[in-house]
Simulated scan of single mutants.
Amino acid sequence: MKEQNTKRAYHHGDLRVTLLEAAKALMAEAGIEGLSLRKLADKVGVSRTAPYHHFKDKNELLCAIAAEGFEHWHTLADEILAKTHLSPKARYREFVYEYIRYASENPEMYDLMFGRTIWKQNTATDALKNVAFPSFQYQVTMTKKWQEQGIMPKEEDPLRLAQVTWGTIHGIARLLIDGIYADTSHIDEMCETVVNLFIQDK
């Protein structure tokens, strides 16, 4: 039987979704370096040229994966901050915990979202920039709200405070991912320390 008859049939949109899901699985298994469009095609069971109809090269694929990571985090953060039955401090605690948990459980994705592979090479696509750049602005906006609610110091500049608070939880995430001076058994205590450092009881 000819090869093209053994390949699966996908609708155009379905294949892109399938490729992205398979790419994330491959990346988790073999890292960013172990991911290629050829391996992706083999894993999904399509022709070697099929992925190129959706991603012109590996960089575009990686940017699409990173964009999904940012979109997932934005959705999760919105869900946490919408829990109005919780106090502002409790919501911030959950925000910090979920950020660090997400990073520690998805290290390859986190590296792709915030690491050198895309950003150092200045190869981010417009689609990725459109979801990644607002990520920090979102943090600044939330910092202003926390200041207005009286749980963060109002005298601090919101931009600098956002940089310091995000820098702290990002640093903890990196320590966990890299296995330096911290492991997952320390997450609860580290998160509580972050909350105690930055959040004031009303």
Rank of each mutant, 00 (worst) to 15 (best):
M27W: 04
H74D: 13
S135E: 06
L76D: 07
R91W: 03
A82M: 12
H11S: 11
W119G: 03
A66L: 06
H85A: 09
A30K: 15
L20D: 11
E29N: 02
F55T: 06
L62F: 09
V131C: 05
M27P: 06
V17C: 08
K39G: 11
R8A: 10
L62W: 10
N130K: 14
A30V: 09
C63I: 11
R38Y: 08
A132K: 05
T84Y: 14
A127P: 09
K83L: 06
L76S: 09
G31A: 11
S135M: 04
R93L: 10
K56Y: 04
V131W: 04
Q137T: 09
A22M: 10
W73Q: 13
D42G: 00
S47G: 15
V140K: 03
P107N: 03
Q121Y: 07
K58M: 01
R16D: 01
A82D: 15
L37C: 03
N130H: 10
S104Y: 15
V140I: 15
H85I: 09
E33A: 15
A103Q: 01
A64T: 04
H53R: 11
A28M: 06
G31C: 10
A41C: 02
T75S: 12
E29H: 06
F95C: 02
K43V: 01
I65R: 09
K129C: 13
N122C: 04
L40M: 09
R93V: 02
N59A: 08
T123N: 13
T75M: 05
Q137F: 12
L19Y: 01
G45P: 02
L81H: 09
E68M: 08
V46D: 00
E98Q: 15
C63A: 13
P134H: 06
K89S: 10
L19D: 01
L20P: 08
A9I: 14
M113R: 05
E98A: 13
V17I: 13
L62M: 12
G115F: 02
R8Q: 11
A25I: 11
F95T: 00
D126T: 12
K58F: 08
D78P: 04
K56Q: 11
G34E: 09
E79Y: 11
F70H: 12
R93C: 08
K83D: 13
Y102L: 04
I65E: 00
P107Q: 06
N122G: 10
T84F: 11
Y102K: 04
S47A: 15
E94M: 14
D14E: 15
H53P: 00
E33M: 04
H74V: 12
L76E: 10
R116Q: 14
P51W: 05
Q137G: 12
F70M: 09
A25P: 00
G34T: 09
